[in-house]
C-alpha cells in the first residue's frame, strides 16, 4: 500500500468534518483540544493514510497539505 500523510493547518481548520467523511481510509478525526478560534481541528488518528488527497479536495479552507510516497518523481500538485 502507498504510504501518505497530511499536514493540517490547525489554526485555519474550522472542524467542519467534511474531510473525515471524504477519507476512504477512515484515518481522520477531530482533535480533543481547540485551536485559537475555538474549533476542534482535523488530525490523523492512525497511519493508514495513502495520500489520496480526497480530504484536501473537499476542504473549504485549504487547510490540508498532502504528501505521498513517491513512485515516480512528481513535482506538480495533483489536480484531478
Amino acid at each position: 500500500m502507498i504510504r501518505g500523510t497530511i499536514v493540517v493547518d490547525t489554526q485555519i481548520c474550522k472542524g467542519c468534518e467534511l474531510c473525515i467523511t471524504a477519507c476512504p481510509q477512515d484515518c481522520l478525526e477531530l482533535s480533543p483540544g481547540l485551536n485559537q478560534k475555538g474549533y476542534r481541528y482535523a488530525q490523523l488518528k492512525n497511519d493508514t493514510c495513502t495520500g489520496c488527497v480526497n480530504c484536501a479536495i473537499v476542504c473549504p479552507d485549504c487547510a490540508i497539505t498532502v504528501y505521498r510516497q513517491a513512485k515516480k518523481p512528481r513535482s506538480v500538485a495533483v489536480t484531478a
Partner: peptide
Amino acid sequence: EPDVIEGMEVVYR
C-alpha cells in the same frame, strides 16, 4: 508546508 516530509513528496497544497 515543506515540499518533502519523511521521504514523501507534497502532492496537494
